[in-house]
Every structure is written in C-alpha cells, then in structure tokens.
C-alpha cells in the first residue's frame, strides 16, 4: 500500500511536483507516465526517502517516509533511474551487500539471491564486475537488488530502459508474476508497456496528475482510441514550440 498526500517539491523557482495525491493498493501495477521533466523521478525520489518533500507526505505500508524512514524503506524495493550500482562489485558481491543491509540471515540471503538471480536471468554474469556488464544486464542487476527481500512495495524507475525486446518481455513477465501480492509503481516512456502490464495508469504533467484510469479507459479518451494521442493532448511538450 502506497499513499501519497499533496506531495510537493520545489527546486528554486521551479515546482517539480505540485501537490500530488495518489493511493496505490496491493495488486495494482501503476504506470507512471509523463514527459521528461514532468516530476516522475522527483516523486519517486521523495517516496523512497532520497529527497525530503517541501510539503505533503508519503506513506509506505502505513510508515511515513519522513518521520519513520527506516521502517518505510524496509518494506520498499527501489530501482533508481539509471540503475546505479557499485561498478567494482560483481552481482554476487553486490546482492550479498544488499542482503546484508536488509538484515537477511546467511541462509535466507543465499536463497533470496538465487531466486532474484533466476528471475532476472543473471546467472551468466554472476561473477563479473558490474561495470563490465552491458546496459541490459546492469538494469537487471538493479531489478534483482530491488526484489531481493520480497518487498511489499516496488518502485521501478524505467525498469525496461536499455533492454532489448526479449529482455523487455522477460521483465514484463516478471512484473506480472510479482503483481498479485505487491504494490508496484513503474515509470516509463513506453506507452505500449503500460498497455501490456499496468492495471492502472496516471499521466502527470508539470507535477500534477492530468489523467488517471485503466490503460483502456485512458486510451478510449484519446481521439482515435489510442493512449499516445491522449498523452500528447494532455501534456506540454518542449518540442511543440520549436515545431510551431
């Protein structure tokens, strides 16, 4: 369960997130859509405790991310934008570190690593330094890290970015597999991804929600019954000025 209540973030004069309100329930896969700079990543950074909001609150499984940070972060799996990791470590060492931080016992840690590695198909690169891996593998190392402790809430910032079509398909299957018991939020630019795996989609623009519904409902609102028409109609694009 993820509750976001009038979340606000300003950077100098720019309001990145403007009073966002949102509740995501277990079993829901929420697609977080919006053009670059709409506030998707900033929202995720606040919800996961990396940035402190200027106003409003976010609760993860009832734990406030600002006042009860550690309890909230324990129930959370997070894939940050760009899937950062420690490049000099191998996936084995890296996942071992995450298991360590998550407080898993040695037995639980090795079982969790095995499952996460199998689910993200990392076996072939398990002992190679992360910095030598391709973008797709690195992304999957980040995913493995996020799902390692079987969190109740998963927040994934562009989980399929940089993956080839087969890998995208595998990650979508994984998200589908995990979704019945978990609260999942994914941000993406790929509208077909939302239609493929999300049970609900929101479109944000300039830090506000401009559309909220199932992908089919949103698509029906578009002039040609297509999600990308609605997306273009609702969001401000920084290329429109140049084209005009």
């Amino acid at each position: 369960m993820l509750e976001i209540d009038s979340l606000t973030k300003r950077f100098d004069a720019v309001t990145a997130v403007a009073g966002l309100c949102l509740t995501v329930r277990p079993g829901e896969v929420l697609g977080f859509l919006g053009p670059n700079g709409a506030g998707k990543t900033t929202t995720m950074k606040m919800v996961t405790g990396f940035l402190v909001p200027d106003g409003g609150a976010a609760r993860i499984c009832g734990h406030d991310i600002v006042t009860d940070t550690l309890a909230a972060q324990k129930t959370l799996g997070y894939l940050p934008e760009g899937a950062p990791a420690y490049g000099e470590m191998t996936p084995r060492e890296f996942l071992g570190f995450i298991a360590d931080v998550r407080g898993l016992s040695a037995v639980a840690a090795s079982a969790a690593c095995e499952l996460a590695v199998a689910r993200t198909s990392l076996e072939s690169v398990f002992d190679r330094p992360i910095e030598t891996l391709s973008k797709g593998f690195r992304r999957r190392v980040g995913l493995a890290q996020a799902i390692l402790h079987d969190p109740e809430v998963l927040i994934l910032d562009e989980p399929t970015d940089g993956l080839d079509p087969n890998q995208k398909h595998a990650v979508r299957d994984l998200i589908r597999l995990l979704s019945p018991a978990k609260t999942i939020v994914i941000s993406t630019h790929l509208l077909e991804e939302v239609e493929a795996i999300c049970s609900r989609a929101i479109i944000i623009d300039k830090g506000r929600i401009v559309a909220d519904g199932t992908p089919a409902e949103l698509a029906a609102r578009g002039p040609n019954g297509k999600l990308d028409d609605l997306f273009r109609g609702l969001t401000s694009s920084d290329v429109s000025g140049a084209a005009a």
Partner: peptide, 14 residues
C-alpha cells in the same frame, strides 16, 4: 558521481 548514493540512501540504513 555514479548515482549509487541514491541506492545507498534509500536502503534501510540510518
């Protein structure tokens, strides 16, 4: 620089 700080600070570590 590498962005791993975002991972580190969102793990349940004081």
């Amino acid at each position: 620089r590498s962005g791993s700080i975002e991972l580190l600070l969102t793990l349940p570590l004081p």
